[in-house]
Design a protein around this nucleic acid. Sequence first.
DNA 1: GATTCGTATTCCTCACAAAGAATATGTAGG
DNA 2: CCTACATATTCTTTGTGAGGAATACGAATC
Lengths: 110, 110
Amino acid sequence: MADATFVLDALGEASRRHLLELLHERGESTVSELVGASEMRQPQVSKHLKVLREASLVAVRPEGRHRYYRLDGRGLETAHAWFSSFEDVWRSRFDALDELVSTNHEEHQP
Amino acid sequence: MADATFVLDALGEASRRHLLELLHERGESTVSELVGASEMRQPQVSKHLKVLREASLVAVRPEGRHRYYRLDGRGLETAHAWFSSFEDVWRSRFDALDELVSTNHEEHQP
DNA sequence: GATTCGTATTCCTCACAAAGAATATGTAGG
DNA sequence: CCTACATATTCTTTGTGAGGAATACGAATC
């Protein structure tokens, strides 16, 4: 299983998250298609894709001189599992009254 | 709701993730307790806690000259929601399995 | 085999963020 | 008040990582 460290580090940059969202919308895409759909230039896209690939967040399928990238469920599942380990916390807030109290308390601090 | 950008950026550093894990294990903790339980020094812990607080990942409760920090479900839920938007991708890895054990997914988000 | 296209990689520079040190703020207790 | 303690904040230094330009690699086409 992909290490959560690599996955969360890779997701810590907005441009990489944007690439993932593009791949989610468009499905399998080549590098140049991603370049066209984003504000980035080709070398940056390739470099970000490399980081995402090392985190098992995307997978690649070479075909001719193109390389088709797609989302890889392994990295996404790793991240999801990391957050699920905190599930008790964010789930309990729906019926926790002290959450509301302390939140108001903090918002009154400048 | 906390912006997923802030949350995922905040989670992109290992030391901040470590603080969250410490708070999850120990429950509500003061800054000096977190300093003792980590390899960081007090100013760094305070600064990281500030970032986590701005992302709604932790909340603080002042008491005397101590400040008790604890996990905040809002930021965690924001991150979880971001990953859930990709749920179809990482879940599709288990499609074959789901057909065999179709009674396992009782959770459904409205 | 030369050329062209798609992509990856290297090198360089620069910005930003993290760590360190010192100091400020705030609170309890004498 | 003064001191001791807990935490936050500023300032500086340092280092990591993103972006740009140029180049290298690989595959298809001629």
